[in-house]
Amino acid sequence: MRYKMTYIFLGLFLFFSIPYLITVFMAPKDEKREINFETYDSGYKIETDDGKSIDLESYLWMILPEQISLDYEEEALKAQTVILRTDIVRRMGDSKKIEEEKLPYKRISDKKLKEALGSKKYSLKDQARKRAVSDTLGKVIVYKNTYIEPFFHGLSVGTTLSGKEWFGEGYPYLQAKDSLEDVESRDYMSVTVLTYGEILEKIKESYKTDLTTDQLKSDLAISQATKNGYVKQVRAGNLKISGTVWAQWFSLASNNFYLEPYDGKMRIICLGQGNGLGMSQYGAHKMAEEGKDDQQILKYYYTGVKIRDINE
């Protein structure tokens, strides 16, 4: 009787445990993995001005908070990480290292990030930025086996800008893409009001000109722009000023703007954030909310590209 009960219990154990074991061993393995940033060696290095080297993957999570809002969905953060990795490796050329001063990125210290976010939020966002790197480890964007120049911007005007319309030639992966939810962002529009004196002062810092404020009032206009409003050139009297430079002069959110005389001054109405090229970060965030992953986001904003491992 005792042996009979043993067999019964053994049978019940196998009956309930075998399905579980089958599920565990046959389920696809999750390829995502956390990495130890203190010891990980990708083979790609960023050389700092104090003679130290930072591994590329560690450098990415250090610069990510300065490039995109950590409040965005993690798939958007991952897409941004792949963009940054691609750009840095592209700038390295045939080398596997680059001096930090040659990169247009800035690291943020843990101390400053914690001060900006607060201790509780910092803990969550610090893990999110590190997952963005770990989950995309070594992934880069290529077009016909060449690293793309991965332009990106904060917020489009509902449609991104095509490379052909902005540059004329090249950049076939930069096609105009709808990013319609961007226009619903609370940051979609910003307004700057300047006196003509302030504008003239800025012009004279860069140009030798006899232009007066009265002449500026009668002869200041946008002379060249794309069909969706990205300014290529501003005319001030006989001067032709790049729209990008104009936006930089007055700290505009983007170079998509128009000029409007207002109460004896000049009002600049600016739409979107950034240059309108490539991935819209806000658009990526909204796509992630809808369930799209980082690769789907990247392949939407960059036409005809492939996502591959850096060592392929």
Rank of each mutant, 00 (worst) to 15 (best):
R2T: 10
Y7A: 12
I8D: 11
I18L: 11
I18R: 07
I18M: 09
Y20L: 11
L21P: 01
I22M: 13
F25E: 13
P28F: 04
K29V: 09
K29C: 05
E34I: 04
T39V: 15
Y40M: 07
K45F: 04
I46H: 01
G51H: 01
L60R: 01
W61G: 00
P65G: 06
L70V: 15
D71Y: 14
Y72F: 15
E75N: 14
E75D: 11
L77N: 03
Q80I: 01
V82K: 03
I83W: 00
L84D: 07
R85V: 04
T86N: 11
D87Q: 08
D94I: 05
E99Q: 14
E99T: 06
L103V: 12
Y105A: 02
Y105H: 10
I108N: 02
D110W: 05
K112E: 15
E115F: 06
S123E: 10
K130F: 04
R131N: 14
V133N: 02
G138S: 07
K139T: 05
N145D: 13
I148F: 00
E149S: 08
L155Y: 05
L155F: 03
G163K: 03
K164D: 15
K164Q: 14
W166E: 07
Y173T: 09
Y173K: 04
Q175S: 11
K177P: 02
K177L: 06
D178A: 15
E184Q: 11
R186W: 11
R186I: 14
R186M: 13
Y188E: 02
V193R: 13
G197S: 11
G197E: 08
E201K: 13
K202G: 08
I203M: 06
I203N: 02
S206L: 12
K208S: 14
K208Q: 12
D214E: 15
L216C: 13
L220T: 07
S223I: 04
V231Y: 01
K232L: 09
Q233C: 09
A236I: 07
I241N: 02
G243P: 00
T244Q: 11
A247C: 10
A247G: 04
Q248R: 11
S251W: 12
A253M: 12
N255I: 02
D263Q: 15
D263V: 11
G264M: 00
M266K: 02
M266D: 05
R267I: 06
R267Y: 00
N275L: 10
G278R: 09
Q281L: 13
K286M: 15
M287E: 13
Q296L: 01
K299G: 03
G304M: 01
K306L: 13
D309V: 07
I310K: 01
N311Q: 08
E312C: 12
